[in-house]
Amino acid sequence: MGCLFALFAGVFPRLALFIVWIARPALVNAAFDTWLLPLLGILFLPFATLMYVILYIPGVGLTGWGWFWVVFAGLLDLAHWGASATQRRQIPGYPAAR
């Protein structure tokens, strides 16, 4: 079941984070003090937020490798934003760059 969730989270990080938030609210509540940061994470950096919630250790926080994976996931999120911005030019009828 864990491998299936990992595959699912890699493909649909927003939905996976939402499922974790619904199924295990204690994980998200331990990682964040308010509901606003996870909501912003779902919207803008879903994979990094999901990694932060999964790797967060209550009372300790994140250690060195945990931060590495969160930063790596954040870079993947930014790469996704950049790739989607360049793909818009391929849409028929989209105005050409000047």
Rank of each mutant, 00 (worst) to 15 (best):
M1R: 10
M1V: 11
M1S: 14
M1Q: 11
C3R: 14
C3E: 14
L4K: 13
F5V: 13
A6H: 09
A6K: 13
A6G: 05
L7H: 10
L7N: 13
F8H: 14
F8M: 12
F8V: 09
F8T: 10
A9M: 12
G10V: 02
G10I: 02
G10A: 13
V11I: 12
V11C: 05
V11Y: 09
V11Q: 09
V11E: 08
F12D: 01
F12S: 01
P13E: 05
R14M: 12
R14D: 07
R14H: 10
A16D: 05
L17V: 04
L17C: 07
F18N: 06
I19Y: 10
I19Q: 09
V20K: 11
V20E: 14
W21S: 13
I22P: 00
A23H: 04
R24Q: 09
P25H: 07
P25W: 05
V28R: 02
N29I: 00
N29Q: 15
N29V: 00
A30R: 03
A30K: 03
A30C: 02
A31W: 02
A31F: 03
A31M: 05
F32I: 00
F32R: 01
F32K: 01
D33S: 14
D33Q: 13
D33I: 01
T34S: 13
L36I: 07
L36A: 00
L36R: 05
L36G: 00
L36Y: 02
L37F: 01
L37A: 06
L37P: 00
P38A: 02
P38L: 03
L39D: 00
L40R: 11
L40N: 01
G41K: 03
G41V: 03
G41M: 05
G41F: 05
I42M: 15
L43C: 11
F44C: 09
F44V: 12
F44G: 03
P46L: 05
F47E: 07
F47M: 11
A48S: 12
A48M: 04
A48R: 03
T49Y: 08
L50N: 05
L50M: 07
M51T: 12
Y52G: 02
Y56F: 14
Y56L: 00
I57A: 08
I57M: 06
I57Q: 14
V60P: 01
L62A: 09
L62S: 08
L62N: 07
L62W: 03
T63R: 15
T63S: 08
W65N: 09
W65P: 02
W67M: 07
W67D: 03
F68V: 15
W69Y: 14
W69H: 10
V70R: 03
F72P: 02
F72L: 15
A73Q: 05
A73W: 05
A73P: 04
L75I: 13
L75D: 03
D77E: 07
D77I: 08
L78I: 08
L78H: 00
A79I: 04
A79K: 02
H80R: 14
H80K: 12
W81Q: 04
W81F: 11
G82P: 00
A83L: 15
S84N: 14
S84K: 13
A85Y: 14
Q87W: 10
R88W: 09
R88C: 09
R89I: 13
Q90T: 14
Q90D: 15
Q90W: 13
I91L: 15
I91D: 10
I91A: 11
P92T: 07
P92N: 06
G93Q: 02
A96K: 09
A96S: 09
A97Q: 08
A97I: 01
R98V: 04
